[in-house]
Amino acid sequence: MSYDESHLSARRRPLSRLTLTLAAAAVVPGAFAGWLIWQATGGSDDGGPAGLPAQGASASASADPSQRPGSSGPEPRPSGPESPSKPASGDDAAPGDARPAPGDGPLAGRTVVIDPGHNPGNFKHTAEINKLVDIGTNRKECDTTGTSGNSGYTEAEFTADVSQRLRTLLRKEGATVKLTHENDRAWGPCVDERAEIGNKAGADAVISIHADGSAAGNRGFHVILPALVKSGGADTSKIVAPSRDLGERIAGNFVRTTGSAPSNYLGGGTGLDVRDDLGGLNLSTVPKVFIECGNMRDTKDIALLTSADWRQKAAQGMADGISSFLNR
């Protein structure tokens, strides 16, 4: 399972292309230019047929990555660093970070929280991450192990790498950037704590980075938006609209920088999916989205996810979308 929680009972609310196109034209005409061109030309010629996502592929994965299901063919190992060195905490500069002087840059004074999906230690702490926490609407697991490619490259490795690349890019724009974790803890944090980190930071934008674990042939990225939820401790009424704006800008720029097509199995070709079952969104009081960058179980998508060059493009697309949202 690639999300921070199980989606076995998720309600899908696919958006029409017409609705999204009109919204894009009104809100972010520049960001969606690449997307509209892709749709006008009939889409990617290497996208697989639409299908249903595999359910529970990683939520019930063994603590040992080598015991996960194999594949029918070889899979590339990641290029570039697979396990990024642990950077400094908070907004202290990490090795290689280049930032403008305080107060400089178009994002000066803005705070962005990046949530790297899952923790590589979750596999060794299944009892802890299976503990139920309150997500407002009900109680769900603290977290999941995340998914992996068929050759063992884990979602947690991928998200840590992309998150650090994204932080560097946003810092260069002058933003204050915080990560929910930096592989500096044995497991977690739980999904409710991840949401609270963004809330306490008073973040102007939060992005939770993931990769999917669906069936082979299911390809492409999708951005998950919060649904309108008012239940228990959850009230997303104030963040639904700005989160949609943030998600649309990230999706459009992700297409432009990576060349990847929107998901062929979720979102009706829009690259957007609305959900009401994710605690990380339900409990957020600041604009927040999830992004599933690709399917780790598809041979073509995993070839992208394991490429350092592509991961840099992915981070750039996210940074451009966030910058566009914060400078709107």
Rank of each mutant, 00 (worst) to 15 (best):
K300D: 13
E248P: 01
S148Y: 03
T306A: 05
P76E: 09
G174Q: 00
A205N: 00
A234W: 02
Q39R: 15
A25V: 07
R297C: 06
E75Y: 11
D245H: 12
V274P: 02
S44L: 11
I322W: 00
R99H: 08
F254W: 08
I302G: 04
S72P: 02
V177N: 03
S151T: 08
L15Y: 03
S243V: 07
R171G: 08
W38T: 13
L166G: 03
R99V: 11
R244E: 13
G252E: 01
M296R: 08
T306L: 02
G70K: 07
A308P: 01
R99M: 13
A205D: 03
A203Y: 07
P226C: 10
K200A: 14
G90F: 08
S214D: 14
L225D: 05
G30V: 15
G174I: 03
A57M: 08
E193W: 07
G117Y: 08
M296C: 05
P69T: 09
T159E: 03
Y265K: 12
D235L: 04
N150P: 13
T41Y: 07
R194I: 10
G70Y: 02
D64E: 08
F123V: 15
P100F: 11
I37Q: 15
T236C: 05
G30D: 15
D204K: 06
S9Y: 14
K230I: 10
G317I: 08
L166D: 04
A234G: 04
S89F: 10
Q312H: 13
G247R: 02
L179D: 09
G279C: 05
A205P: 02
